[in-house]
Nucleic acid binder design. Structure first.
Lengths: 210, 210
DNA sequence: GTTTTTCTGTTGCAAATGCAACGAATATAA
DNA sequence: TTATATTCGTTGCATTTGCAACAGAAAAAC
């Protein structure tokens, strides 16, 4: 089963000279791609950080997903409706691998080894995405900010095999990830601290009770 | 690309006598499976309806996913942590196909045609799940009940190629799907109706404005 | 056909959340 | 190093949302 890290390994081992796979660079702040038409595009973020964002009719911006190194994304995963105007924005300088879902299982003319490996392991790659999405849904379905925070902290704690962990992004972004108001979240963090459930210094959290 | 409907076709065409794929029936109200240990189990709901539910520490029940005919689910899609106690409950009599992720790509000894087809099309099956989850996340990230309702209605309307559509489940379940309080949602539905955004009779909705 | 259960529609009230705004602290760019 | 932008931490206040409760409608079970 291929993991996120293995992508890197394969890229190092085999030169990508296959025409159906493209590699591009984007500067911070630029738009990497938009989900408008159905081109079945799939992208892998090799380096940098990017957000999948939605702009509401009233101009409000919402971060739907946050991508880090080796994350997989693209409009191929979305049912594009006219109501959604989704785009992926580079939060730092990004290096992206583009290819199409349609030719993923086709034999590559240049007999490119990376293409072959990608095809063989595509299922596992998506499976990881499913797991991430399931985690996100489980947190988003919690009814209160407190429950969302505790749910997310528990996951981070389990992942880290420790009661202490560092948040993978800023508190501002955390509020976006949990889809709650930042100040309300800060208030709740303070309560959790005051009531002795967590210890917090900057972005480092320690769970005190189970 | 295999679709949900094709599963049915394959089941009709080929008898499933492969040992690594099991078929079981469950009566309404019974537990189909639990996500506790990591057995990499994958299930396909052939008939009936089921819910993936979570029981909180205080006993509250939350519906995380609702499955209908030919949906795919299972603990293989979850990062199981000790904090989650997830189980799948039959809401109606259910017929389920069980198999393991581990042996999905292994050659089946009985040379079973279904197994082979499943293996070849597994990626597409999961891809559909990703799309469903993305839709769900997009709705859950909306900040107000009104926005959630409008977002969901827009999706149903687009899917149906019409401004009128029937909700795929009860209003009680809709509240669960949107992860909001039912009475608060009813209040919001009433406002939407009173303000002329929608027309509603029972479970049939018509969008009046864009 | 009758009983039992679930679902719908509503409301008053309490509690949680979002909004706006601010200075201080950090981080990033020039 | 200084200037500029972003993030953090906090608060008062308005609004939304959740909770509890109930009666009638509809659906399911018997």
């Amino acid at each position: 089963m291929i993991s996120k890290l293995d992508i890197e390994k394969f890229l190092n081992d085999f030169t990508v000279n296959c025409k159906s796979i493209q590699r591009k660079n984007f500067k911070k702040g630029h738009t990497i791609t938009t989900y408008i038409e159905k081109r079945n595009q799939i992208c892998i973020l090799l380096n940098g950080e990017a957000d999948l964002v939605r702009y509401d009719l009233n101009g409000d911006k919402t971060i739907i997903e946050h991508f880090t190194k080796n994350d997989i994304f693209g409009e191929a995963f979305y049912i594009v409706t006219t109501n959604n105007e989704l785009s992926v924005e580079a939060k730092k300088n990004c290096e992206i691998l583009f290819f199409s879902y349609d030719n993923i299982h086709q034999k590559c003319k240049s007999n490119c080894k990376f293409h072959q490996t990608l095809s063989e392991n595509f299922a596992s790659l998506i499976l990881e995405k499913v797991m991430l999405l399931n985690t996100r849904v489980e947190i988003l379905t919690k009814r209160s900010i407190r429950e969302k925070l505790r749910g997310y902290f528990n996951i981070l704690s389990t992942r880290n095999l420790s009661r202490s962990f560092t948040l993978p992004f800023s508190l501002t972004d955390l509020a976006d990830y949990l889809s709650v108001d930042r100040s309300a979240m800060m208030r709740e963090l303070k309560s959790l601290k005051d009531e002795g459930f967590i210890k917090k210094s900057g972005n480092k959290i320690t769970l005190l009770y189970k």
